[in-house]
């Protein structure tokens, strides 16, 4: 691409996202109507379609603050951070951090974490399929207990944990017809695990220590490290329940035992 064309295109793209800028020069319309008016229509369609994409991904956030506030906030996000990929399903990845630092939303401190949960559900929905490891293979670990402290796992790609300072799952669930929003105490900390089983995305509330444990373990920490972190954050942490959750939800897709780095994936 020539430098001149590159400069023309980036100028066009900037003007598209910033209504304060003038219509780019050199535009012609097929029927002779005013290019500035046509450009304004195009500019509006681009912004509205991106705001619509965010509204589709974050319906609970929108419900919590009301549609006018949400769309105004999304509009600022769109102007500041236009999509870098044509895949709009993942366009909202930067949105929770943006919401966290968006001053007008500061009075709703839990909004960013609700956005995180909604994005996690979106990611889980689109995550790759991977067969979980059979319980018999996991049971094979019992033959060499000395390896257990250094055990690491690979987790199903759909699994993610959010250890929130807010009742993020309850807030979300109240918008799915589970429980009354008025009955939710938003400032109570909650750990949520999101994963996909078959084609269904699940959100599961975890005890605090189990949330810390699973978050660390699925990110590749050794079992003993994840256990210590969990116990430090929650004296009531129970390893049996934590491992039981991993088995019940079939989260483990591969085992790595420390000394040989041998992968069991069958």
């Amino acid at each position: 691409m020539s430098a001149a064309m590159h400069s023309t295109q980036s100028g066009f793209a900037r003007a598209l996202l910033d209504p304060a800028q003038a219509c780019p020069g050199g535009l012609h319309t097929w029927n002779g109507s005013d290019p500035a008016r046509r450009f304004a229509v195009y500019r509006n369609n681009v912004t509205v379609s991106l705001v619509d994409a965010l509204a589709d991904t974050f319906p609970v956030c929108s419900a919590l603050v009301g549609e006018p506030f949400f769309r105004a906030m999304a509009r600022v996000f769109v102007a500041e951070r236009p999509p870098q990929s044509r895949v709009l399903a993942f366009y909202g990845r930067d949105f929770p951090a943006f919401v966290e630092d968006f001053p007008p939303a500061a009075s709703v401190p839990y909004l960013a974490d609700v956005a995180r949960l909604e994005m996690m559900r979106q990611e889980a929905c689109h995550a790759a399929d991977v067969e979980p490891l059979a319980a018999e293979v996991i049971a094979g670990l019992l033959a060499a207990p000395a390896q257990l402290p250094a055990l690491r796992i690979h987790a199903h790609p759909s699994v993610a944990v959010l250890n929130s300072r807010y009742a993020v799952h309850s807030l979300w669930a109240a918008h799915q017809g589970e429980g009354e929003l008025a009955a939710v105490a938003p400032m109570l900390a909650q750990a949520v695990m999101v994963l996909r089983v078959g084609l269904d995305v699940h959100s599961i509330v975890l005890a605090r220590g189990i949330g810390v444990f699973i978050e660390q373990f699925i990110q590749g920490a050794e079992l003993v490290v994840a256990q210590q972190a969990a116990t430090a954050s929650d004296p009531d942490f129970d390893l049996v329940t934590a491992l039981g959750s991993l088995l019940h939800w079939q989260i483990i897709t591969a085992l790595r035992t420390g000394d040989d780095d041998h992968e069991h994936t069958d």
């Binding site: 996991i138 390893l239 049996v240 039981g244």
Partner: peptide
């Protein structure tokens, strides 16, 4: 390690 083996064994049986 022994405690973990016990926990894993229990988790496998109750899962």
């Amino acid at each position: 390690a022994a405690a973990m083996a016990l926990a894993l064994s229990a988790a496998l049986s109750i899962a």
